[in-house]
Design a protein around this nucleic acid. Structure first.
Lengths: 188, 188
DNA sequence: CGCCGAGTTGAACTGAATCAAGAAACGTGG
DNA sequence: CCACGTTTCTTGATTCAGTTCAACTCGGCG
């Protein structure tokens, strides 16, 4: 839980009473490897902090599904679109390794926004942060080649990448597994 | 100004005193056609509401620049990344037609967040909204063909499209003007 | 009138998709 | 702990959407 407070304080510091309120709402949950945390079509009701494990966010498709991100230890994960709009999630969330999450329900999160001093600020900063991530991604998709995107990802989390099957990375980068296999070959 | 209040009330209603505070900060500015509103490299200091006109958001590049969006009447426009991080903007903002903006400075906007009841909520909802837009765009770039993206755009704002040079639309869709010209030919 | 940028069209080229088949890694049951 | 089957990864051949380079047309404007 310590890590969670650190993460949040980094966004906007919480006083102890606010933190106590927030943390009292958190529930620890454990998931096996390759387990669905949120099924696409369901409405997202939780915000989760990854205490341990790796998570993939994707849209399941007939043939190959579309991967939108990998989340690691000490990051938050949620089907944010669905959480915000409270409509069925296109996205599905799945563990790639054994995973431990701390979860707060959307209901409780809204309470935090209302009841605590900094709740709304944190909510705003979180949304702003999510925006900045997507904005970067848009730029990457528009202006970079698949190879550059692979190298970026490799640069960001080299070790973690080794734990993720190539086909998922390919899907995140926006190419087929075959294409990524060739890119890899080319650059080594 | 009426339109601005309508827009904001749609996000989260403001009481009169909050609105008065906010609207007192707005300044009306007029721009000619093809005029730079924000130069890339400068820090964004304003949030602008488009009262009249069409605006293009892009990153200037040596050869062809990258277009990230078109904004129309009764929408907000800003180099949001730069506004949030207060670092130099990669993005440049330019009018495509004669344009009238209502602008509020970032400084005043922060005051609105602080001083008014709903300021933070609006700030949050605005960020959430910006996120949702980018999220949609990411999906479009990852899963759709250039042709599909063109049709989407056409479907969203058919009339407005006619006022935007093809080369900018091509850049938004992520192809060369030649390619878009052929797509157009193909689908008519 | 002549020029210039925008748009169209053509031809050659390229990166990635698709189809297909084989090799390697992985896990599950005997 | 090995054997088998399934899934993942690699490699090859073909196809395709889009790029690049280039030439030509059109419309507006000095």
């Amino acid at each position: 839980m310590n890590e969670i407070r650190k993460f949040i304080d980094n966004i906007s510091p919480l006083n102890n009473s606010d933190w106590n309120f927030f943390s009292s709402k958190l529930k620890k949950v454990k998931f096996d490897k390759n387990t669905t945390v949120l099924e696409s079509g369901k409405i997202e009701t939780k915000l989760s902090f990854i205490s341990k494990g790796i998570i993939r966010l994707y849209i399941p498709k007939e043939e190959t599904d579309l991967t939108f991100g990998f989340l690691f230890e000490n990051e938050f994960v949620t089907a944010y679109d669905s959480l915000l709009t409270q409509s069925p999630s296109e996205y599905q969330i799945e563990t790639l390794t054994e995973t431990i999450l701390w979860q707060i329900s959307n209901k409780d999160l809204q309470e935090v926004y209302k009841r605590t001093n900094n709740g709304n600020i944190i909510g705003r900063k979180m949304a702003e942060n999510m925006y900045l991530i997507k904005s970067k991604r848009e730029l990457s998709l528009l202006s970079k080649t698949a190879e550059e995107r692979y190298l970026d990802l490799f640069f960001d989390s080299p070790k973690l990448l080794q734990q993720i099957p190539l086909k998922y990375i390919a899907s995140y980068i926006g190419v087929t597994p075959q294409a990524l296999s060739r890119i890899r070959k080319r650059i080594t």
